[in-house]
Design a binder for these strands. Structure first.
Lengths: 338, 338
DNA sequence: CCATCAGATGTTTACGTAAACATTACAGGC
DNA sequence: GCCTGTAATGTTTACGTAAACATCTGATGG
């Protein structure tokens, strides 16, 4: 900066003013400074800026693995929204989802140059007590029910589940089986709870819960079980990958979808429309989730907007070929199929 | 820091020494300083550190969308490897893959606090001439043939393609059709080239190229065409998503896989083993790619290691149920099926 | 008993920037 | 023509850290 000032024949402060687009600088001077900057290849030093201003203009994102569609798409939207606001995004991966690891990420974070943090993770791993965040670092959490502790943004998973289960009931199915996610997952828990509640509401029997671990492979294994049950005519899978495995298992066991069994997924991954058959599923708007996260975290930084609370992004049922009325024998009971 | 020093009754320099694990500090003093740090909740200011040291300990990653498995998995590996080396990763998403956008990302980058950059992108979008990177910022590129300009790390796509095509020929297929990726894509180009070369080498006719855009939907559309061609008994799809769409199209048109048509994919996405039928595909070790990227970029920063050149990560053919010998009518011609 | 030396700790300084304050120049009013 | 006020520009300073250098302490050997 001093060099630029010297070359342009001005003070370094004037260079600073030009660099920051400050008003009171003559056009002539401005041009001279810009020319000098260009000639010397001047670039503002962000470390010095951060030191002076106390702001890094960076948002940290802590996430456990980028293996799920949702996390990735959310991350992408966060990065895009943040960029639009002039913020950079720093990634803090947590290799294995143990509390130790998470704590490690937060420890690294403590030394990190971020103004705010967005956590894309089941909050129960986040053991608030042991985490000491730098003061003034704001946190927004995705995928959690910790709305009373943090600001939370999430998709309306209960609503999506309800729509999925109702769709199957409305088609005339006696009840709906559920291929749930892994035990520890909060998202899985919520979908399972909503499934139970919707069935209970409609006065249907609740079949035993079958669990997978989100992977297609686990869906396949669970599917082999489900295929063996004659009475199972409709399955709500907690995500599309497991639904894929389920479709394979049903096919291998000779049960046709949707003629014999209806299958519905969750997430609407890009491939869902190309499954055999194309999968009816619940679409989640992760782009919107990411956008809202950034919005929320920036608002918190500016000290306006609520400290905590949950924002839900609506989900949408996407109807494809994998769902239909149940086979004739077990015809509609109370709710007409129409 | 000054506060800590005061509380501990030492100089700020001693605090700095403790903070950085410097040797010549009495255990007693060290404990006092640590106690003071804890009491005051001291955290080193990374901006000041960066200003002093000239290093940000951050690697920037520029990528066009996180929509492909490969990019995401590579990114994840980069983040993990970087964390292990004490580096943070800053994400620079490029919304649409135009040169303007890419240039924009680099412009943002110029002001960004990074010591090095890894570009996960087709390099032809990267128009080296218009990009002025901060001096001393090292670049490593993934997915490109720019080994003469940059340090490049990539999977051995040609080798993987060769293995895939040879596998089909060895099964007895007359020739192999190719469902290629989009025109602009370098990865697609390489796979297509290797497909042609392998067929030519084996003295087979090269069927007309069919193109998709990586999506399952485009694979489906292309598949409807291919399904109509009796003579097509083996298809090599440039990625697993397109292969998925292809499987659906073949199924709908009543052509059985693998009895009538063999299908092979590329990437080995986690779901590939749960397709109908499970997909034979080429596995790519993206974790290794990410690891090597970080290694390469750090080596470049330390000024040892080559300035440019390409490192290839081996690929591996994963044989599943979607490939088999061709149907009887068009029996093996020159290469015996064994 | 003192010179020497090494290890521990303190002091000064600079990294690049921008806020706060100081100065200069010039236009307009009297 | 001088005073006042304002716009443009310059000067000083501090942000938090760590390298370089300075100082102090106590132990060792002659």
């Amino acid at each position: 900066m001093a060099d630029v000032a010297r070359l342009a024949g001005v003070s370094s402060q004037t260079v600073s003013r030009v660099s920051n687009g400050y008003a009171g600088v003559t056009e002539e001077t401005r041009q001279q400074v810009l020319a000098a900057m260009k000639e010397l290849g001047y670039r503002p030093n962000s470390a010095a800026r951060a030191l002076k201003s106390g702001e890094f203009r960076t948002i940290g994102v802590i996430t456990f693995s980028l293996s799920t569609t949702g996390n990735v798409r959310t991350l992408e939207a966060i990065a895009t929204s943040a960029a639009r606001e002039g913020y950079a995004v720093t990634l803090l991966p947590v290799a294995v989802p143990t509390q130790d690891e998470v704590r490690g990420a937060f420890t690294r974070l403590e030394e990190l140059a971020v103004d705010a943090v967005i956590v894309i993770m089941e909050v129960h791993l986040l053991d608030a007590a042991t985490v000491r965040l730098p003061p003034h670092v704001q946190v927004v959490v995705v995928d959690s029910d910790a709305g009373d502790l943090y600001t939370v943004v999430d998709t309306d998973q209960a609503g999506g589940t309800r729509a999925a289960v109702r769709h199957l009931l409305d088609l005339g199915h006696e009840t709906v089986w559920h291929l749930g996610g892994p035990e520890g997952s909060f998202a899985a828990q919520r979908r399972t709870d909503a499934w139970r509640a919707t069935l209970a509401e409609a006065g249907r029997t609740v079949p035993p819960l079958v669990r997978g671990d989100w992977s297609a492979e686990s869906g396949y294994r669970a599917g082999l079980d489900l295929a063996a049950r004659e009475e199972c005519t409709a399955v709500f899978a907690a995500n599309d990958q497991m639904a894929l495995g389920l479709l394979r298992a049903l096919h291998e066991r000779g049960r046709r979808v949707p003629e014999d069994v209806s299958v519905i997924g969750f997430d609407d991954i890009p491939e869902a429309g190309s499954f055999l058959p194309p999968l009816t599923t619940v679409h989640q708007d992760f782009a919107e989730v990411g956008r809202l996260c950034v919005e929320a975290v920036l608002r918190k930084m500016r000290q306006d907007g609520p400290e905590r609370g949950t924002t839900l992004v609506p989900t949408r049922l996407v109807t494809r070929a994998s769902t239909a009325a149940p086979p004739a024998p077990s015809a509609p009971r109370s709710a007409p199929a129409r």
